[in-house]
Amino acid sequence: MGKVKGINISEKKGVVKKPIPEGHFIADFGLEGDAHAGKWHRQVSLLAQESIDKMTETGIKGLCSGKFAENITTEGVALHLLPVGTMLRIGETIQEIAQIGKECHAGCAIRVQVGQCIMPKEGIFTRVISGGMVKVGDAIMLLEKEEA
């Protein structure tokens, strides 16, 4: 279906995340060491490289994986078109789409640096159902409910 193009982490919310080669994702928590991890429905954020490319086409320079504070940058998956409840196998993990898009908060560092943010429309958020490692280059597969 698709692949992991980047894994990104930050210790503070609302800032650009830094790339890492792999991450440990904990069931019902999220990416170990990330500010957004916790016992809530937006444990992991994902954004498609194709969405980032749309922003680049508007003339914004310097956009790369993590610039929109996403934990996982994907390639080959129209994430925002998948319904809430969709189960994904990402690397060793199984994650469930819990929310599509979000309201961009006031004072968002991404909006200040980039001028606008695509996460409110095309970013998705998942809950980690089954934890494990995710590495850059790992496959992303859509699962049927009975496979999860």
Results as ranks from 00 to 15, higher is better:
I7F: 05
S10N: 14
E11M: 00
V16N: 01
K18W: 01
K18R: 06
I20Q: 00
I20T: 00
P21F: 03
H24A: 06
H24T: 14
H24D: 11
F25Q: 06
F25T: 12
A27Y: 13
A27F: 14
A27V: 11
A27M: 15
A27L: 14
D28P: 03
F29A: 07
G30R: 06
G30S: 13
G30K: 07
L31D: 06
L31F: 05
G33V: 04
A35V: 00
H36N: 15
A37I: 07
G38K: 08
K39F: 15
K39I: 12
K39R: 13
K39Q: 15
H41F: 14
H41T: 15
S45G: 04
L46Y: 07
L47G: 03
A48E: 05
A48D: 08
S51H: 03
S51V: 08
S51W: 00
I52W: 02
K54G: 01
K54A: 01
M55Q: 00
T56R: 15
T56F: 07
T56Q: 12
T58I: 01
T58N: 01
I60R: 04
K61S: 12
L63S: 01
C64E: 01
S65Y: 05
G66S: 10
K67E: 01
F68S: 08
A69G: 10
N71T: 08
T73C: 09
T73E: 06
A78R: 11
L79K: 00
H80A: 14
G85I: 11
R89K: 15
R89F: 10
I90V: 15
I90D: 06
G91N: 12
Q95E: 10
Q95G: 05
I97D: 03
Q99W: 06
I100G: 07
K102H: 06
E103G: 04
H105V: 13
C108P: 12
C108F: 13
A109S: 13
I110G: 13
R111H: 10
Q113M: 12
V114E: 09
V114P: 08
C117P: 15
C117W: 13
P120N: 13
P120F: 11
E122S: 03
G123Y: 13
G123M: 09
I124S: 04
I124A: 07
T126E: 13
T126H: 13
